[in-house]
């Protein structure tokens, strides 16, 4: 029921349903992928040193995210003070604050709008497990149910120093990983892929419901016709 949507191509290989419906990859992008073993050390160094976060904040953690940009903590030392408002120019989502079912679809959209390579820091207890609102009817229990997470940053809310620590951990991760291999992983760890914007429910469920309903109606019509 909650398995990821699987798309098979003509030769019956699993195609990760990634981005192909929303964006087009240019030839430059593909060329860089091919050259990745040569360029990846340089690229990783550059990427790790200029992680631009998206100004995405829902609740309490967002305030600490603002504090970390201010003079007392100063995230700009690590080259990350360029908070971009548009996902197209950001590299990192700091999911600052609780993600509810209503917000889930927006978060997924934002994540898909980020250009590769993209990173996620699950900031705060709410985005790791649901935190204090774990059992609330409207809260998503952990943002890793929606999007893949690179670094988990606990705290309610985490202190700004902790955010800097998470950023440094992420930088370390970027420096040591092979991006081409990371891309092959795709979105496999994500159980809920398409979510309806208003209801916040997985699209597969809605589709299955709609299919059942139509089947019912059709059988009913058939029954009526036979009578």
């Amino acid at each position: 029921m909650n398995e990821p949507l699987k798309i098979l191509n003509q030769s019956n290989e699993l195609v990760s349903p990634e981005l192909s419906d929303t964006v087009t990859l240019t030839t430059l992008d593909k060329a860089i992928d091919m050259l990745s073993t040569i360029v990846s050390p340089i690229a990783n160094l550059a990427r790790s040193n200029s992680v631009w976060p998206l100004t995405f904040g829902t609740s309490c953690c967002a305030i600490e995210m603002m504090c970390v940009g201010m003079s007392a903590f100063d995230i700009s030392r690590f080259g990350s003070e360029v908070f971009r408002a548009t996902p197209r120019q950001a590299d990192l989502i700091l999911t600052a604050g609780t993600i509810t079912r209503k917000m889930a679809s927006a978060l997924i959209t934002l994540y898909e709008q980020l250009p590769e390579p993209k990173y996620v820091i699950a900031m705060g207890a709410c985005t790791i497990t649901g935190g204090m609102f774990n059992d609330s009817y409207s809260v998503v229990q952990g943002v890793d149910r929606l999007i893949p997470v690179d670094v988990y940053l606990p705290g309610c809310p985490p202190r700004p120093e902790a955010i800097l620590d998470a950023l440094l951990k992420l930088q370390q991760k970027i420096r040591t990983e092979n991006y081409a291999k990371r891309r092959l992983k795709g979105y496999d760890q994500r159980p809920v892929r398409y979510v309806d914007y208003d209801s916040g429910r997985p699209m597969e469920d809605l589709l299955a419901m709609a299919m059942e309903e139509t089947k019912e109606v059709l059988t009913k019509q058939d029954n009526d016709n036979t009578k």
Partner: peptide, 11 residues
């Protein structure tokens, strides 16, 4: 509104 409805009253 309601994108941050965390069910405080229910809690």
């Amino acid at each position: 509104i309601g994108h941050l409805h965390r069910a405080q009253e229910w809690q």
